[in-house]
Design a protein around this nucleic acid. Structure first.
Ligand SMILES: [Mn+2]
Ligand SMILES: [Mn+2]
Ligand SMILES: [Zn+2]
Ligand SMILES: [Zn+2]
Lengths: 155, 155
DNA sequence: ATTGATATCAAGAATTATTCTAAATAAAAA
DNA sequence: TTTTTATTTAGAATAATTCTTGATATCAAT
């Protein structure tokens, strides 16, 4: 169901080509996806909108929301939620966590260690089915941490 | 800084007693905290508001938000975010994850396994400082999972 | 107890991210 | 081409949360 859309996009998203149970690989969807692939800094919907507008001035914010929703539902993109902030979007499909620096606001991908699995540390209830797992860390990134120690030695 | 407020509350929250760098243990704060302790089902701010109103009809939603914020900042309560949904609040201070059943919407605490730590599975960037870690899982809880298999065998 | 300073509360307005609605457009199917 | 269906667009609507402001309550000192 989902794989056809993925193929279409992987195959450079030919605009007339792909459909998937009614889902089409439209210019807007391709564009939004490209924007996410181009700068992998976990932009918000509004940021995706602004970047998309530079390449297609007619695109609307509603469409960007629609496309992000469609791509997420298709499994091509992950919606990243950190606290109450606006959702961010990420085309990295590997299982990973997110680290948000409270100083510079940047969002980093955190990979799983080799041979480790997230579930292994948690006392999961017997008989539960887990579909989704979100891990968000907040703190100070290496860069900001280093800068902090240099400049103001108060802490 | 924070411990004084905690003491006050632990000491049954005597209304005249506690202050903390200007922070007072008011009737409203005590009430909101009690509501959270009474039913540990991770209520939303609105749910806390409704429960609080039954005991203090004059309390306002704004105040409930204020109290939840204050208690969270003081470290007595954890704000739990799951996807885009309204924040939920939890007085369980032990490190734990949250499991949300997409069927019955209930939120379960998931404890860390003995001798395990969350950080151990992640490839953390050298030099980063982690202040906060949120783990949310979505899926179907044991009860709903069992019920699902019985009734409609379509899957 | 009275006063003055400060913290908190309460009501409603404002904000923000997101979703919804409805009409216009584009693509696919017939 | 005609018909059907999916998608886009603009703007309205919604929902959670935050902000603003004046009223109350508490505290610290007199
Ligand atoms: Mn990511
Ligand atoms: Mn909890
Ligand atoms: Zn940083
Ligand atoms: Zn359930």
């Amino acid at each position: 169901m989902v794989s056809k859309l993925r193929q279409d996009i992987a195959a450079k998203g030919e605009s007339g080509g792909g459909a998937l149970g009614g889902l089409r690989m439209t210019k807007q969807r391709k564009l939004v996806y490209d924007v996410l692939l181009d700068e992998r800094d976990h932009p918000t919907a509004t940021e995706v909108y602004m970047r998309s507008k530079q390449r297609m001035s007619s695109i609307s914010l509603a469409t960007v929301y629609n496309c992000l929703e469609t791509l997420s539902a298709a499994g091509l993109v992950k919606q990243v939620n950190v606290g109450r902030d606006a959702s961010r979007y990420c085309p990295n499909l590997a299982q990973h966590a997110h680290f948000i620096c409270v100083k510079c606001e940047q969002v980093l991908d955190i990979d799983l260690k080799n041979d480790k699995e997230v579930e292994s540390v948690w006392e999961l209830p017997e008989g539960a089915r887990i579909d989704q797992l979100e891990v968000a860390m907040k703190g100070v990134c290496p860069d900001c941490n280093a800068a902090e120690k240099e400049v103001g030695g108060n802490g």
